[in-house]
Structure formats: C-alpha cells, structure tokens
Design a protein around this nucleic acid. Structure first.
Length: 605
RNA sequence: GCCAGCGUAGCUCAGUGGUAGAGCAGGCGCUUCGUAAGCGUCAGGCCAAGGGUUCGAAUCCCUUCGCUGGCUCCA
C-alpha cells in the first residue's frame, strides 16, 4: 500500500508482475475508476496518474471538493455499470501535438506530455532510457494518456472482484511543494475469492499490528501527557528488551566490542564540527542554554564516540577499535510520520563505531555484515532485504572520490556476503554511503533496522589520527552501525513478525502455572520456585477462577507453556503441559519439563 | 508538516439536539472446578481540551491537542 512498493518487490518479481493478467486488470480498473470520477465532477475533475501497485491500484485526482467514504460506494457502483457495458480498450500512438490538444484542459496530463516530449521523464518524473512514445488508451467516454498494457475489454474485469479501499492525500509527483491531490486506492483480483482472501489478509494484518498487540500484551504505551513519539516500556515489554539487550551485549563482547557510555547533550561546537548542525539540524531539537553555552540533545552518538577515540594517542596496533553503546537519541520527526514504536522521536540505538586502518576496512565491513546477520537470525528473522544507499548530491559532505571508493568497498562486501541487495540511489546519509537491511511489517510496509555506514568525514572534521608503523600520523576510517537499529522499532517489528508470540527465550512470561483448585497451590508454588532457580520466568495463576478461564487468559497472553497441576500431578511431581499452539503434551515429570524448556528457550541459530 | 477521517469508562464500542449506556477488565462475595470465558454484586465518565450557536450540546460550528490512513521525510 506504500508508494514505495516498487522497491519492496525483488526486480524479477516486479517484472513478472508487470506482465501478468492481474497487472492489466488493475490498470484497466484504474481507468474505469477514473471515468467514474470524471462523471461525478463533469468538467471539473483533473486527472493525474493511476498505476497498478502491489495489491491493487490507485489514481490521483484534483477535485473541487474532498471525497467522502460515501463517494467511494457511488463510484464503485458506477464502475460495475461501466464494466458490464463491455467497452473495448483501444490503443493508439499519437503525436505530442495531438496529445496536448486532447488534454488541453488537463494540466497534469500536459505536464506529463511535456515530460515525455522534452526529455524522457516517466509518469513519476524520473528519467527513462527509451525514446518516449506517446500513446493513449480509450474505453467508453474515457481516454487516458497511458503506455498500457490493458485487458482487451472491460468485461475482462470481474465486477465482484474489485473494491475501492480508501482516500488519501498525495502530492503531485511526490513533491511537497506541489499541489496535494486526492488519491483513491482500490484493489482488483481475478476472482471474488481472491478479493475475499485479500481482504481477509488485511484483517489478519490488523491482528498482528504491534500497536494493538502492545496494548493487549501490556508491552508499551504512549502517553499524551508525556508526548507523541515517546515510548513508555511496560514491565512485559521491558523484559523482552532486557533479554534482547543482554543477549546482544554478550555477543558484542565476544565479537570484540568495547562498551562505552555517553551523555545525552553536548555543546553546539561539537555538533558544528561533526556537521550535524549543517546537515541534520532540521531533525534536532532546539538548544538548551546553560551558562551562556548552547547544548543540543543528541540525535546521534557518533561525536561522543569520536571524542573517546580522541582522548589519547592511538597506535596502528590499537586498531580496529569498536565502541558500542545502547545510546538514546532524540530526533524531531514531523507529527504526521509518527507510528507506534516504528517511528518515534526518542529511541535507543544499539549503536557502535569502528575505527580502523584503511587496509583493515574490507575485513571490518565483512565482519560487521556477518555479525549483523547472525544477530538478526537469532531473533527469528530470515527474510530481509539489503540496500546499498549511494550519495545524495544535495546532501553530502566530503570528496566525491571518497564517496566512490567507499561505496565500492561496501558493494564488494555485499557481493562477498552473497546477500541479495538493491541500490538505493541517493539515499545515503550526509557523511557517507551505507548498507541498510530492511524488514516488512504486518501490512507489507518496510522498515529499516540495520544500518552499516561508511564515514570518511568525521575522522576528517575531528582530525582523528593514529600513529602508523612509520611513526607518522594517519587518518583512520570509521564505520557507524546499528544492528537492531533502534530498540523501539526493533520491538515493533519483532512483535509483528511473531504476532506477539515471542520466541520462548524472549517471551516476557515463559511459563504460567495453572492450579486446578486451591489445594494445588502449594505444588504450583513449589514448581514455580524450581523453575525460577533455573532462570525461567514463571507465574502462578492463583486466582479463584476455573482452570478454563486461566488457560484462556494465558493463551491470550501468548505464554509459551501452560502447566496444569491437579491431584494427579501433585501425586507424581509432574505437570500437564499445554502449549500456546493449543497442543497438549500431556503429563510429564517436572525434571523432564525442565529439560524441555532448557532446550527450547534459546535463540535461533 | 500536508490531505482526509476519528476522539464517549482501563479496553472494545453503542448513543447524532432533550436526565450518559453495554460487554470485557477492576473491587467485594460466593464457587474449588481437568485443557479457551462459573455466578452474583459494587464501583467506574468535565463524552480529548477551549470557545461559540441554542431554552437546552456527547450530538451543530470554530480553534487547539491527540490518534488513524496516505503523501513528503526517516532508524
């Protein structure tokens, strides 16, 4: 549903889609919808573009008034009539002049035609290679500037397999300085069953939504009184985070990282030197005045780690140095972009900075990439998409030659890793190119977790040096990296990925002990104690409720193990094990259960 | 930030100009039960906030705050 669906799909998948019947159906349905909208506002509707997207299509319009949900029903009804009339889609290649006459009263179309005519810009305003050819597709009263392809006739669209979904604002050509258009999103499938399935999928996605699960499982909240985009971690969410962090810290230690800590604010001079005030100020909060000095809340941890590096002379023998910190940063994000835990204003990065000699750089990138994947896999992630972000000409510091060399270094490392990746042109941060690893959320939106960023600018601007074998000063290279990204976003993605049923080692509560009657409480507490001694997270449901109710509640809380204890279990020092999958493992001795959970409550490998 | 929609009890929601409701959750009793909700009872609300229209506003209008879906921007 996101505009960037084009990049979410792998290239081959995208090409296959563009040749599919479904693609033509959706494209044609978009035209039918546009016709219905034109009829609703005769002479007043201005049409923009209407392409197929991942699970449907959209069309952008400039209209005299705002559309309402009721309008969608009217439009949908009219669309079915148009479809039923079985109009043919007629293709024609026309000259630019002819096209301009045809769309004399359609300013957006005129702009598109001029783009094609003058210099090969496609409908998104992006450059294209092929020589542009202007073509139109017409059916019934509607003629669209369009390169197709379409179905032959409107009757190829199944009237029971289309649905208009929602209305949204969208800037013309994605530029916030240009007019805001009204976008109608719709979906179209080959069969009513497919549509049904798709709608069901949307409902399913809502069930996995981390904001809903966050409430239901009591993991986190956002308080209006604290402020938007500021997360409060509840005990259960906090436990998941603690376990995740503990694991990561241990792994970092094994991987040769040092742990550092840094403050939340720093003098303006620091941020001037680092370039943040030049390049990142719009994301930084207003400074605090302390004794006539301006201090800024940190949006990144790097300048502090750089200062630690600079605190003494470094020898080539000391490198690489790897400073890790779970550093909490604050960034101003525009109010409309905030989204649960996924997009917030204060977050804790599992951040680290590597300082190394130029000759160590390739190995250092290889290592961090490998370490990165290992960590993500431990949390049950298998499918991610890597991107190589290249220089943004309008937002970059330093020499172009350095940019090229470092981009090349990252790319070779990606090639060596065998990880599939795509190039994100112009998406780099101001100080260097980066490798990003992204995950999809429940609704198919992608979120960036890991980032590995090359930096040749901070070593320069802070004049970082090490003494080489030759006794002279040399400039180290620097890598910024965050693997989980931010604990907040990671938690959000983790919740959705597992639909709230965390892997056993991460589950905030691992075992619920369910005594059948009060006389079984003693045995229940005894078992709980034995499990706690072994480091497991256990609680006894001692409420005056029926066993069924206790099971239901534990099930809803997605607690991995429910241990039912009644007369039979007390007699034999055993427990009846029920899993959250609803599987009933039957009775087993407490010691056997301890073996079971010890085997299962571990990170994936 | 922009376009649109929404904001009623802790949660999910009904109420659309005439005395604020339900279910769940919570408190208190009773119940002691074998794999997804035992029964009863009590309490809980400045209807997001502020202003206006009206004899009368949860309901209509305006402003602000917050949330949701997009757009732009980003970990």
């Amino acid at each position: 549903m996101k505009g960037r669906w084009r990049w979410v799909m792998a290239v081959e998948q995208k090409e296959r889609y563009e040749q599919s019947v479904l693609y033509r159906i959706r494209h044609s349905t978009a035209h039918v919808m546009a016709q219905a909208v034109m009829e609703m506002f005769p002479g007043e509707a201005k049409i923009a573009i209407g392409p197929p997207i991942a699970d449907g299509f959209y069309y952008d319009f400039d209209l005299p008034r705002s559309l309402t949900p009721e309008d969608l029903e009217v439009l949908e009804k009219r669309m079915r009539e148009i479809i039923a009339a079985d109009h043919e889609y007629e293709y024609r290649i026309i000259s630019a002049k002819e096209a301009k006459e045809l769309y004399a009263d359609q300013p957006y179309k005129i702009e598109l035609i001029e783009g094609l005519e003058l210099g090969g810009l496609d409908e998104y305003g992006e450059p294209i290679d092929e020589p542009p050819e202007i073509s139109i597709y017409a059916h019934d009263t509607f003629t669209d500037l369009c390169r197709g392809p379409h179905v032959e006739r409107t009757s190829k669209i199944n009237p029971d397999a289309i649905k208009l979904l929602n209305i949204a604002g969208a800037y013309w050509r994605g530029d916030e300085n240009r007019p805001m258009l009204q976008r109608i999103y719709g979906t179209a499938w080959e069969s009513a069953d497919d549509l049904e399935q798709y709608l069901w999928r949307l409902e399913e996605a809502k069930v996995r939504d981390h904001r809903r699960l966050g409430k239901e499982l009591d993991l986190f909240s956002v308080s209006e009184d604290v402020g938007p985009g500021l997360i409060l971690w509840h005990p259960r969410g906090g436990m998941v985070r603690k376990v995740a962090e503990d694991y990561c810290r241990d792994e970092h230690e094994k991987a040769g990282y040092d742990f550092v800590y840094s403050p939340h604010i720093g003098k303006s001079k620091l941020w001037e030197t680092s370039g943040h005030l030049e390049w990142f100020e719009e994301n930084m909060y207003a400074p605090l005045e302390i004794e006539d000095q301006k201090y800024y809340l940190k949006p990144m941890n790097c300048p502090f780690h750089v200062q630690i590096y600079k605190s003494k002379m470094r020898s080539y023998r000391d490198l690489p140095l790897r400073f890790a910190e779970w550093g909490t940063v604050y960034r101003y994000e525009r109010s409309g972009v905030l989204h649960g835990m996924m997009r917030v204003r204060g977050f804790t990065q599992d951040d680290a900075h590597h300082f190394c000699r130029p000759d160590q750089m390739p190995e250092e990138i290889d290592r961090v990439l490998e370490f990165n994947l290992k960590i993500l896999r431990a949390f049950g992630f298998e499918n991610f998409q890597a991107y190589l972000s290249t220089r943004n000409p309008e937002k970059s510091a330093g020499d172009i030659a350095d940019w090229e060399a470092s981009t090349q270094a990252l790319q070779s490392s990606l090639d060596r890793s065998g990880l599939p990746y795509e190039i994100d042109e112009g998406e780099a941060v101001f100080y260097g190119p980066k490798i990003d690893i992204k995950m999809l959320d429940a609704l198919g939106r992608e979120w960036q977790l890991s980032t590995i960023q090359f930096d040749f600018n901070l070593p320069e601007s802070f004049d970082l040096t090490y003494v080489g074998e030759d006794g002279k000063e040399h400039r180290p290279y620097m890598i910024h990296r965050a693997l989980l990204g931010s604990m907040e976003r990671f938690m959000g993605v983790l919740i959705e990925h597992h639909a709230g049923a965390f892997p056993i080692w991460l589950a905030p509560m691992q075992v619920e002990i369910i005594p059948i009657a009060d006389r079984h409480l003693g045995h229940a507490n005894n078992i709980a104690e034995r499990l706690r001694e072994r480091g497991f997270r256990v609680e006894v449901d001692s409420r005056s409720e029926r066993m069924n109710a206790k099971i239901r509640d534990a099930q809803l809380q997605k607690i991995p193990y429910m241990l039912v204890v009644g007369d039979r279990e007390v007699k034999t020092d055993s427990v009846s094990v029920r899993l959250r999958s609803e599987e009933d493992l039957g009775a087993m001795r407490v010691d056997d259960f301890l073996d079971l959970i010890s085997r299962e409550a571990v990170p994936s490998v």
